[in-house]
Design a protein around this nucleic acid. Sequence first.
DNA 1: TCCTTTCGTATTTTT
DNA 2: TACGAAAGGA
Length: 673
Amino acid sequence: MSQLNSRQRQAVQYVDGPLLVLAGAGSGKTSVITRKIAYLIEDCGIKARYIAAVTFTNKAAREMKERVSQLVSGSSARGLTVSTFHNLGLNIIRRECGELGFRPGFSIFDDQDSKTLIKDLLFKEFSEASDDVNLLQARFSEWKNGLVTPEKAIRQAITQDDLLSARLYQQYNQHLRAYNAVDFDDLIMLPVLLFREQPQILQKWRDKIRYLLVDEYQDTNLSQYELVRQLVAERQALTVVGDDDQSIYAWRGARPENLAQLQKDFPDLKVVKLEQNYRSTARILKAANHLIANNPHVFEKSLWSDFGLGEEIRLIQVRNEETEAERIAAEILDHRLQKRVNYRDCAVLYRGNHQSRLLEMKLQAYQVPYQLSGGVSFFARNEIKDAMAYLRLLANPDDDAAFLRVVNIPRREIGPATLESLSQFAEQNRVSLFAAIHLESLDEALRDRSVNNLREFAHLILHTLQRCEEQEAPEALKLLFTAIEYEDWLLQNCASPQQAERRMGNVWLLLEQLERMLEYGPAEENALSLQEAIAKLILRDILEQQNEEENEDKVHLLTLHASKGLEFPHVFMMGLEEDLLPHRNSIENDQIEEERRLMYVGITRARTSLAMTYCKERKQFGEKIESTPSRFLDELPDEDVIWEKIGQENPERNRAKGKATLDALFKDLAEDS
DNA sequence: TCCTTTCGTATTTTT
DNA sequence: TACGAAAGGA
């Protein structure tokens, strides 16, 4: 407790009512949550199993768990719930799945699955061109996040188009049910609806969760907020931590107004502001404050720090995107060689993922090691999707999406024609594709050859399932992937044998992780069932740690969104131009404030040095376009920035520019090592 | 069924 | 420009 400042201490010790902690960037909010959990357990005598902390990412949850266990003695943290919203929802659904009309082993559809389903429905039900799939998916998601059921959506429909979407939404949900599946948004919405209808079930969960803490509260959407409200009840033992200035997920349904709403819903709400920043120089904070003052605020807050004024922020104009990448690469090399800065202490932030491409090329050219976050994730890989589909099919044979993905992988001569007939047949008999295979009347509906192929596939799955029950499941799974000769299939479909080998390795890695979960469970506590482990995999709860090679000395490349919650001594922000940051679509949709927050997040990542680049011209969709510097640059305090424009450069600063100086730097580097 | 070509479209993406 | 998806041909 002695390590906390008075405000932080106040937030930790206030346990008698609802509390909102307005925690500015770098003000030690994670410390407050973890220490509060420890305080609740050790000083207030609340059993850990009655406390739940909710976060948005698995990473945050893991980190929090770890920090709590360092603070409390031995076993007293046992039973503590620290999980993501989605994981909490999943647990509720799993316990109450009978009430909700789902069978154990239900699948969780990811983004891609639901997209495919919507595409299918569009085609089948309305024989419509499949152009608006993304739009529909976003609309369904909005509805679910706003707790709008299909019936309500149909009632509320105004235009013909609304009605069509709403009907499709209903179909979509019905199909999910038929597949014994839920989607990501259901993980929150279904518990809320259940709690509304069955107060006795809600009471059960209220008895379990007696103290609730919510991290990154500004990112909650309506359904998540409702879930929080339901669980908290009249006891009002609630602590939420958030920063309205760091709300950058409105486009995903997050509602920063929830912070203000809290005051209305909990009249006794106590508000504690954390404004002391333990991360950045005074100048960086001043710039951040100055910028964000252009946004309206419900709660005024102003960050300050004990650290010195620090260096000015450099605003660097470059000719085009090529020189921009070159300049940043050179700056980083300069940092490394002149100031002995580690690569890992540098980060480059940008608005869109594509902006990293050129930079990567330049960094490679200069042999600067880098780490790209938020690129193609492990789970986006085809081989992992295949393996996951097999696993899902084993857990839930009615999962048609999983069935369709792997029924012909590897080749089993089951093509679109066969599947179309099977699908029609299944629809007539109101069963899943997998179940349809076992109906005797299938023989009349399909060609013998097709039926045989399908039955052979079904047998493979059932046989594996049987082996999973009889012997060790991990063994049975390994046998499955050997039996289908998956490696051969990869070999046929990969550019090189090495690539195939790597992909096969990924599959084995997945299975090994699964094996560990089945044997020891997460945190070595309790073994999971196959179904639980698969659910955790789909929610990315396990197996993401691989990417965290944090100790390697590499420059970090990430989007502004991905940078939230992180900090770096030296930060570069690139593409500070109108139409990029703020992004064109955001300008058109009147979402400048969110873009400004994005900029704010970027600035507050920096500890000691901060530089921003913007181009004079930039190639966009193949043609050269003149760029305008971002309006946000003008919102920074004049006295704290240095403008470096083309043609009037400061010679001192130009050491790292140009090929000649770079060659000299390389020589240095060679001598260095 | 698989490979090629062509066409259309361009944010951010916690789960 | 650059990528992924859909369509068309072998």
